[in-house]
């Protein structure tokens, strides 16, 4: 297998994987970045959400070869010090319960706010409906998204 070069969290990383390997497993099992989670593998749960060039993508659905050439950001690279407004809002609202879905929630919210800094309830519903939370933290997620929008605002 010829090595594949990926740009992850600002670094060039070489991996030797079958080109059709989903990005999720490249990140988790080859690059040691376990922040993105496996929940379903079929684009239903959103636990695996990462950014490709700043857009939220389900890493279980993106092959390694398709990810090559794009800027990949995982929760580990969202900020070096939890300073991202979404992370700050998540801390302020103490959103997580078990925590398993939360990197997917945060990456989805961060991508939403990047493209729509003051999202409407409807935009929030549409974006966040992509990520399941079995613990049911949705109410605090909504509060945290509003807080992040407010505190990152002009």
């Amino acid at each position: 297998m010829p090595p594949l070069t990926l740009r992850v969290n600002g670094h060039r990383r070489q991996v030797e994987v079958a080109p059709d390997t989903p990005l999720l497993w490249v990140l988790r099992d080859h690059l040691g970045l376990t922040g993105a989670k496996y929940g379903c593998g079929i684009a239903e749960c959103g636990a695996c959400t990462v950014h490709l060039d700043g857009r939220a993508e389900l890493s279980c659905m993106v092959t390694a070869s398709r990810a090559a050439g794009h800027e990949i950001t995982t929760i580990e690279g969202l900020s070096a010090d939890l300073s991202h407004p979404v992370q700050q809002a998540w801390i302020a609202e103490d959103v997580p319960e078990c925590g398993y879905c939360q990197s997917g929630q945060i990456m989805t919210a961060a991508a939403l706010l990047a493209r729509s800094p003051s999202p409407s309830e409807r935009e929030i519903d549409e974006a966040m409906a992509a990520v399941l939370c079995r613990c049911g933290t949705y109410q605090r997620i909504r509060r945290a998204v509003h807080r992040a929008a407010r505190e990152a605002g002009p």
């Binding site: 922040g35 929760i75 103490d94």
Partner: peptide, 10 residues
């Protein structure tokens, strides 16, 4: 555990 969850480090 919130900070570690939010950092993706849990």
């Amino acid at each position: 555990d919130t900070p570690a969850h939010v950092a993706g480090r849990s």
